[in-house]
C-alpha cells in the first residue's frame, strides 16, 4: 500500500471525492487542478498512477496524457481518464494518446476503487 496517485480535475468537488475515496483505501493522493499543474506535480515526485479529467483549462487531459507518455518516467504508468457518457470520440482520443483505462462519469466510489485496484493492485 501507500501507492501514490495523482488526481487531476478542475472541479473541486470531484477532486475531493477522488481524494477522499482513495485515501480511505490507503492510497496517497496528490491533487492537481489542471494539466499544467499535473505535469509539474508529476515531475516533482513519481506517481504510481494518474487519474485525469479530460476537459480542463490550460493543458487538457488528452495533452496531459500525451505529455506524460513522452516522459520516460511515465511511459508505463497507468493513466485513467474520467469521461462522460456523451464523449465517445474523446474516449478514443484518450486511448490513442496512451490512456490505460477510463471511468465514465457519474461513477460510484467503489467503481473508482475497482479500477485503481485493477491497474496498480
Amino acid at each position: 500500500m501507500g501507492k501514490r496517485i495523482l488526481s487531476v480535475d478542475d472541479s473541486t468537488s470531484i477532486r475531493q471525492l477522488v481524494q477522499f475515496t482513495l485515501e480511505k483505501e490507503g492510497y496517497e493522493v496528490v491533487s492537481a487542478v489542471d494539466g499544467r499543474d499535473a505535469i509539474q506535480k508529476a515531475k516533482g515526485k513519481h506517481a504510481d498512477m494518474v487519474i485525469t479529467d479530460l476537459n480542463m483549462p490550460n493543458v487538457d487531459g488528452i495533452e496531459l496524457i500525451r505529455s506524460l507518455r513522452s516522459d520516460p518516467d511515465y511511459r508505463f504508468t497507468p493513466i485513467v481518464m474520467l469521461t462522460t457518457e456523451s464523449a465517445l470520440e474523446k474516449k478514443d482520443a484518450g486511448k490513442n494518446a496512451g490512456a490505460t483505462g477510463w471511468i465514465v462519469k457519474p461513477f460510484k466510489p467503489e467503481q473508482l476503487i475497482a479500477v485503481v485496484k485493477r491497474l496498480i493492485g
Binding site: 457518457e85 456523451s86 464523449a87 465517445l88 471511468i103 465514465v104 461513477f107 467503489e110 467503481q111
Partner: peptide, 16 residues
C-alpha cells in the same frame, strides 16, 4: 437524441 446512454460501458460495474 442523446448520444448518451449508448456509450458507456462502465468498467468495474459488473462486480456489483
Amino acid at each position: 437524441a442523446d448520444t448518451d446512454r449508448q456509450a458507456g460501458s462502465q468498467p468495474g460495474i459488473e462486480r456489483q
